[in-house]
Computed example of a mutant assay.
Amino acid sequence: MSNTITKTNFNFPGQKDVYHGKVREVYTLENDVLVMIATDRLSAFDVVMPKGIPYKGQILNQIATKMMRDTEDLVPNWLTATPDPNVAVGIACEPFKVEMVIRGYMSGHAAREYKAGKRILCGVAMPEGMKENDAFPEPIITPATKAEMGDHDEDISREDILKRGIVSESDYLQLEEYTKKLFQRGSEIAAKRGLILVDTKYEFGKTKEGKIVLIDEIHTPDSSRYFYSEGYSERQQKGAPQKQLSKEFVRQWLIENNFQGLEGQKVPEMTDAYVASVSERYIELYENITGEIFRKADVSNVLGRIEKNVVEFLNE
């Protein structure tokens, strides 16, 4: 497991700043260039797990960049190049301080809130009489405020976003429109692969010129939940759990081991066998979501490989 990327400390030509997120490390260079490195860190319940997952960063980066290219005719995005399997390069933007979460089905966080008796989520009504994993009559947008380092993201309503001036009304309407378009396209792509895009989140930023663009990741198993289409209806009728393609299996393992990111709780031990099994699940996710065979990049000197590829690209 020593060839996983759990931290980077590069000094690229023209580097001005670096931001270490939960999973990605973002290097800001001169001329509004951003270099985003997808590490192998695994985050659940807003906590970074103690061990990296082999190939996870490559998988996330390659799904996200493929999906950006598959949606760029609908919504402009920040991406300009992918010089390495773990790296995306693009335009520096000022991120909006909200994540646009959209849900086609009542699963995950929405289902947990519903079970607790709530019928309003982020100011949006959820119909009575729903079962976990039922489809909403139409997708609902349930935004979350962007957390500062170490804080949990918080549900927030459209009304509160506008009232608190987090996003202007005209910008917010654009974010909603883009979110619906992306979810529609993501659902169509998923359907071709025998999958259902259940819910996902999108992040947006504004360029120096004032243009709103899609940033970060899109339609990856870290930011999205997928079900298998085959057998979905039968499982719902029986009240059986849905077959999922998402990070939910990690969350379920943590819950079973008494961890939900709450104060005083300890992350359970991640054995090498468990870490390897998570890596295998991520490869399965990649192949199902993209319809392509996953090709493992050479990780014998993974940090050296990334540095060489990025510097060569920048020098071009």
Rank of each mutant, 00 (worst) to 15 (best):
N3A: 05
T4K: 04
F10Y: 12
F10M: 14
G14Q: 11
K22I: 11
V23W: 03
E25M: 10
V26Q: 12
E30I: 12
N31W: 13
L34P: 00
L34W: 01
F45D: 02
V47T: 14
V48P: 02
G52W: 00
K56V: 04
G57S: 09
Q62S: 08
I63K: 02
M67G: 01
M68H: 06
D70W: 10
T71K: 00
L74Y: 11
V75E: 00
V75T: 09
L79Q: 00
P83D: 10
P83C: 13
D84M: 08
N86Q: 12
I91Q: 02
A92D: 06
R103Y: 02
M106A: 07
G108S: 08
A116P: 01
I120A: 10
C122D: 04
G123F: 14
E128W: 02
K131I: 06
E132Y: 11
E138W: 05
T145G: 08
G150E: 07
D151Y: 09
H152E: 15
D155K: 09
S157T: 14
E159H: 07
D160G: 11
D160F: 10
K163D: 04
R164M: 14
G165Y: 10
I166W: 02
I166Y: 04
E169V: 12
L182V: 09
R185L: 05
A190K: 01
V198T: 13
D199F: 04
F204C: 05
G205H: 01
T207M: 07
D216G: 07
D216P: 02
D216I: 00
P221Y: 04
Y226H: 05
Y228C: 04
S229T: 13
E230L: 05
E230Y: 09
E230N: 14
G231P: 12
S233Y: 15
Q236A: 10
K238D: 11
K238F: 09
P241I: 10
S246H: 08
I255D: 07
I255F: 11
N257D: 12
Q260Y: 03
L262S: 07
G264A: 11
Q265C: 05
Q265E: 15
P268D: 10
M270G: 00
A273Y: 12
V275S: 01
S277W: 03
R281G: 09
Y282Q: 06
Y282R: 07
I283E: 13
F294I: 09
D298Y: 09
S300D: 12
L303K: 12
L303W: 03
G304T: 06
R305S: 15
E312T: 15
